[in-house]
Amino acid sequence: MTSLTPALVVVVNNQRDWQRVCDEGWYRIPLKHAPYPVAAEYLAFYFTRRVGVHAWQVPCYAPVRRYTLLQRRGLLPDEADHPRADDWYYKVELGATEQLPTPITSRQLRRISFIPTTLERIHSADDVAELWQTDEERSVLWQHFPNLALKTTKRLSIEERGVRYQPLREPRGLHGSFWWG
């Protein structure tokens, strides 16, 4: 589990937001509507039709540099009179964007705002629907955690005080059977 790299797919639904990502290197997430989990090492971008290119696709991603909490008036000083000027936002500062070899397409054209996922899944997904995580790994972990040690013994020898013992050839259908000495 720990080898997976947390990533967050975020929606880009206008040219101006995308320009900020490209030119100024940041994206904003309203604290009030932040996804769970919000923290990620990468942001990937899901474009709607209004961006003009790559509609309903995830074409690229960028590494996260910082999360800064700011009120909207500080984040967008040109819009200081906005009705949500006092709302708090995460300003997510980003490194350079990287293109995916093949953009991930949303074949069902579903309306999304955020998808907590992993960088590994971004690199392997064919469809945006595959980016959603289920909680299945948690239940698998829970069911099997106590037995993980035994289940890994199939190809390992056992050592005790410098003496190595060989595992008994495993009978079909049984796991973790050993003889000592």
Binding site: P37, A39, E41, R138, L141, W142
Partner: peptide
């Protein structure tokens, strides 16, 4: 461990 995707720090 109980909630996938949660990290304790960067």
């Amino acid at each position: 461990l109980g909630r996938r995707g949660l990290r304790a720090y960067d």
